[in-house]
Design a binder for these strands. Sequence first.
DNA 1: CTGAAAGCGCTTACAG
DNA 2: CTGAAAGCGCTTACAG
Lengths: 344, 344
Amino acid sequence: MSSVATQPDRMRPVMADVAQRAGVSVATVSNVLNRPHLVADLTRERVLRAIEELGFVRNRAARSLVTGRADTVGFVIVDLANTFFVDLARGVEEQLDQQGMRLLLANSDVDLAKQNEYIELFEETKVSGVLLAPLDAPLDVARAARARGLPIVHVNWPGDDESCGVVVDEELGGYLAAQHLLERGRRRLAFAGGPFSLSAVAQRRTGATRAVAEVPGASLETIETRRITTRGGRELGDLLAARAPSERPDGLVSASDALASGAIHAMLLAGIRVPEDIAVVGYDNNHYAHDSPVPITSVAQPGHEMGMIAASILLEEMQDAGDHAHRTLTLRPTLHERASSAAG
Amino acid sequence: MSSVATQPDRMRPVMADVAQRAGVSVATVSNVLNRPHLVADLTRERVLRAIEELGFVRNRAARSLVTGRADTVGFVIVDLANTFFVDLARGVEEQLDQQGMRLLLANSDVDLAKQNEYIELFEETKVSGVLLAPLDAPLDVARAARARGLPIVHVNWPGDDESCGVVVDEELGGYLAAQHLLERGRRRLAFAGGPFSLSAVAQRRTGATRAVAEVPGASLETIETRRITTRGGRELGDLLAARAPSERPDGLVSASDALASGAIHAMLLAGIRVPEDIAVVGYDNNHYAHDSPVPITSVAQPGHEMGMIAASILLEEMQDAGDHAHRTLTLRPTLHERASSAAG
DNA sequence: CTGAAAGCGCTTACAG
DNA sequence: CTGAAAGCGCTTACAG
């Protein structure tokens, strides 16, 4: 620009610079990097030294332009603030690592526009595949990208005719929670959570209903809450405390640990004993379950395992694009027993 | 491979395909995408239609190979399970969005090897800059990448002669916490946290010491814990409960909310009242602070703001590589008052 | 307003 | 074992 532009552009060295310094061709430099066994020992050492001295870093853009492949996978995550998804990401990374693939993350933050932008970014970047933990909304952008040949696997969301998915059996989770309380002798159960427009919450409730139907004399009432946070839980606890003791359930299935934690807190303050008066089961098995004044029995979703499985399905799909049969894998949640539902 | 490979390779369309279909040259297709004003209306429409019909997606690798630029920034994060860093990422993304830049995340998971791998991955991918929230360990890989011309800004870590950083004043945070307790009339303070090899913990302690030194008759004891988790907190609470009441502090500065939450839990179980017997201040202002049986007064770090600032410094560094003066920006933490330190 | 051509930094047959 | 050459999919001066 300026007339006295003496400042040399700090040029990042490229393969040609390495080749020149080592006194070989670029093909040989490339071979040292990609098929070192083809190169004579002394040549290889010379090239390696030149790379070292120059601080050469290979340009992946150029590399993958030629090979048509990338060793990177993208993961679009609906809500990183939820540690369940961080567990998922860890599982994915562990599986990918074993295949020498790298993982890049994007947080869509429960925003459909962002989710779509990140899917497109990954597609343009030519990652070799995408993992998508979507929000509860239409997936047409993902579908279009898939139609163009980008392998996409759904995580925490079912697949369809043209894609795979890995989910946890939410219905079973609700069933296990209610069944556990019934086994403990509880008969007047309540299921709390909401809004029921969230499919996971609705399915958990369905499971609880099924368990109760199997036991004569048992009943289930439904309490729809506005949210499944600790605040929602405190409102729930206050609501139960305001009832006459005979009108209260003796077992509570809560759609989240946060909700359970808030409810327990409010009930303890009101003099209701947990588990003696009301036994409680939470959902998610996260820190709320451990750190509540009364440790909470909880349904755990296998996040890490789910991530590993989703990653291996994606790898499979990336390899044999031809004869791959799409499927949805459903994992089983497990119940972790703690004080909040101890035998009364 | 097989002899009857009749299955046509599902070819992703490239610019040449679009050009052919639209009856123009690839240069014109490129112009439609990059400088649409140079192209006649009718031609542009024809090209756009061809793009649409073919489902053409631009190859970023090829693009950035030519331009030498990328519109992507990478963020290497030490621990995504800590919501503070998720807040940070949100701030970064917001700032980047305004400049039309995209953000890719990588979780180093408190693992130095991973941190280094991701820095190198981003460098090879030719992102235009990197944000690094590092672990408490040597940064030579980052330094080397910077020396090769990759702009890197430290987040939650100070800069040095050749790099910028954005940090929170940890010393001030410790000072504010202790000062608050002193103002509430507490005189026998304790600072709990650890290990002190973590510089943030050590600095918070230094701040608490300074506040206590300003008040005649006030004392501060230090309790080094093995970790700053809720479990560490319960051990801490048990330890305090085991002492004779006269030997206990009347104010506790805790290096994290998790630690404070665990300690409060254990103390309540032991019949120690919070805040009457011991007032408590936590650190981080995360969910533990809100959701504890006794809501916890806490020192908040401005994660979102920090992310925005770090991103704008990086953008600045990416633009004028020449006359950029490296600096470290220090943000002030704030105290959020809750029941755990209410006036006794 | 449009196109032919060069070139970004690599990898990969193919000769030698 | 090594190198010359073609080409991956784009963008950008430069002619016309």
